[in-house]
Simulated scan of single mutants.
Amino acid sequence: MTALTATVPSPARQHGLAANLRNIASIAWRSLVQIKHNPMELLDLSVQPVMFLLLFTFMFGGQMSGSPQEYLQYALAGLIVQNSVFTALNTAVGLHSDVAKGVYDRFRSLPIARPVPLIGRILADMVKQVWAVALMLVLGLIIGFDLNGGIGGALASLALLLVFTLAMAWLNVLLGLVAGSEEKVMMFGFTIAMPLSFTSSAFVRTDTLPSALQFWAEKINPVTAIADSVRGLLDGTPVGHSVIVTLVWAAGLVVVFFPLAMRAYRAKLS
Rank of each mutant, 00 (worst) to 15 (best):
K184A: 09
M187N: 04
L166Y: 15
F203K: 13
G153I: 10
A169Y: 12
V163F: 14
V116L: 13
V185G: 11
W216D: 00
G176K: 02
T206N: 08
P222F: 13
L135G: 03
E218H: 02
F215D: 08
P195Y: 05
A124Q: 08
M168P: 01
G149K: 12
F164V: 04
S197C: 10
N148H: 14
W170Y: 13
D146A: 13
G120S: 10
G153Y: 08
F188R: 00
P117I: 06
M187P: 00
V133I: 15
G144S: 08
M187Q: 12
L137C: 13
L175F: 12
T165W: 03
L160V: 09
G176C: 00
L155Q: 07
T224F: 05
V173E: 00
D207P: 04
P115S: 12
I143Q: 11
T208Q: 13
R121F: 06
L141Y: 01
P210H: 06
V127Y: 14
I192Q: 01
T206Q: 08
V163W: 10
A159I: 09
Q214F: 03
L166K: 09
N148T: 03
I220D: 00
F145V: 06
W131C: 03
L161Q: 12
T191R: 08
V138R: 01
D125H: 14
V204P: 00
K219H: 14
G120E: 08
M194N: 04
I151P: 01
